[in-house]
Design a protein around this nucleic acid. Structure first.
Lengths: 187, 187
DNA sequence: GATTTCGTTGAATTAAAATTCAATAAAGTG
DNA sequence: CACTTTATTGAATTTTAATTCAACGAAATC
């Protein structure tokens, strides 16, 4: 069984390496040879672990799909406090668990452009907007959030978060912003 | 002279077509053949107008460099009002002058990853952060903006704007957000 | 109207990168 | 220890898309 575990670990090493490179340089600028060299292993060997570059990408997207994507209403916690806490945690991951942070950034990138169509479709199958809309409406009823179309506000909020995380990811010496600033988009 | 003007116009048509496609699908997913077909013209002819795909990209970046990138302190106008106005204008462009809007989104994309190195360097040579930092400091002194590291706030603000514009660009049925929401990141 | 120059096309070429493959080493199994 | 299976490499092949090119029609020039 050590053999199988070994293989799993190697697969994982490849995935993590690829995730890093994809986030750093983008999918197309990352060559299979680059990933292999970074793992490190020979280019050919990588195909022993993954069918193709696209399968590798899809595998990453599937991992991302399972992540902590669950935004939800937690009874008793005010919506603004909840969202602030959520962001605080993600930002903390930037240092402690870079892969979680990278995955978050990565998923956002995949949803937009510049990746094979199938990956995009898959990534778009998670929906953070609907639950956020509910949360925003609740916040509006409670008076903690301002008036406005909750759907637009939700998209705007996440787009903003995505933009900021991409910035943090690209610009390593940017300090972590205060989650309150971002949540105040809704206040 | 009509000959030369004709050529200029054709060149411009190619640039605008490419800009659209680059923003929509990304640089690498946009094939020279796609651009040519969309103009429309034959693939070969495109090389009569541009040396290479990269030259075409660089040309677009150069255009973007000249755009309305000038963020500045306008005496008498409070910083928050100024930034709100700026955003209002950009959002208005989304409908009236889609190319201005696309260009804005495009420049942001180029600055990050997934494009040839030289394009990135060129795009990064514009600096919206420094003038914004000044504006933010002024706003802090006047008490219209909250406390905090002005540099981080500026990066955060623009990253947020970039994220929202990319979202609007990808998701055509998203309504235009209220510029006030975004500026409130700083309040 | 002859001649040169420019615009145009689509097929041929080239270049880059993904993918396959034959060969070998290492590890597991009896 | 023989034997089978898996890991590994680097070179050969294939694929894809950029780029070049030879040929031709149209516009400008003389």
């Amino acid at each position: 069984m050590t053999r199988k575990e070994q293989k799993e670990e190697r697969r994982n090493a490849i995935l993590m390496t690829a995730l890093n490179l994809f986030v750093e340089r983008g999918y197309y600028d990352t060559k299979i040879a680059d990933i292999a060299a970074a793992v490190p292993m020979s280019t050919g060997l990588l195909f022993h672990y993954f069918e193709s570059k696209e399968e590798l990408l899809l595998e990453l997207v599937k991992m991302g799909l399972q992540g902590p994507g669950a935004i939800g209403d937690v009874p008793g916690v005010p919506p603004d406090v909840y969202l602030t806490g959520f962001l605080k945690q993600i930002f903390a991951f930037a240092k402690e668990q870079p892969w979680v942070f990278n995955m978050f950034v990565f998923m956002g990138q995949v949803r937009r452009a510049g990746m094979p169509e199938e990956a995009r479709r898959l990534a778009q199958s998670v929906d953070a907007v609907t639950p956020t809309v509910k949360l925003i409406k609740k916040g509006q009823k409670d008076g903690v959030f301002h008036k406005g179309d909750a759907d637009t506000m939700a998209r705007c909020f996440w787009a903003s978060v995505q933009g900021i995380m991409e910035q943090m990811s690209a610009d390593k010496n940017m300090k972590t912003p205060d989650p309150e600033w971002i949540v105040s988009i809704l206040k």
